[in-house]
Amino acid sequence: MSDIERELEEELHRVLDPMSARPIPPRRSIQAHRTLKTLMGGAGAALTIKVLTGVAVAAAAATVAGVATTGSLNPAIWGQRVSQQVSSCQKTLAAGQHGIGDCVSDFSSQHGAAVASAARHQGNGNSNGSTKGNGISNGNGNPNGNGNSNGHSKDHLKVQATTPATLEPEASDPVAGHPPARITRGP
């Protein structure tokens, strides 16, 4: 036996013998440990993560569906409103009068103003139509309802989107910077 082997044996016994002499603990319960291990480690942990992810995705899907069916950001709802407005405009036409363009245009510009207002509150909203994201509405009645919150929460959009657009005609001079023109008959 070489020196290194002899030294190794002495050293192993010197260190390990006292430690091995400690009292023998009771054998660990298998069932409890197994359950904990299933929950906390290995495939169990992966399964737990998958289940939690599934729950989170389902919750998110439900929220999005709610916004889509209740908010006016949905193009389908906006389309229904336009159809109703067209019918309404046709009914109000006097006999022999033609063209509902002005009537529908007024309604569209109201919607644009409403979306632009929402964009103003959000700071960088973009209605993706003629209503610009910087909050300026040009009122040509072509907002398609594709609001872009640019990272803002859906709930925030939802609150603003459910505010019904009024059918009041927009002031022709919203800035009110000009005095009304007065026409008088000349002397």
Partner: peptide, 23 residues
Amino acid sequence: FERLYRNTYRRILGTLIALVRDV
């Protein structure tokens, strides 16, 4: 198995102490 545990625990522990970091 309980008897086996009592008879061999210390020897198995001795081996493991040499193989892993601490008691």
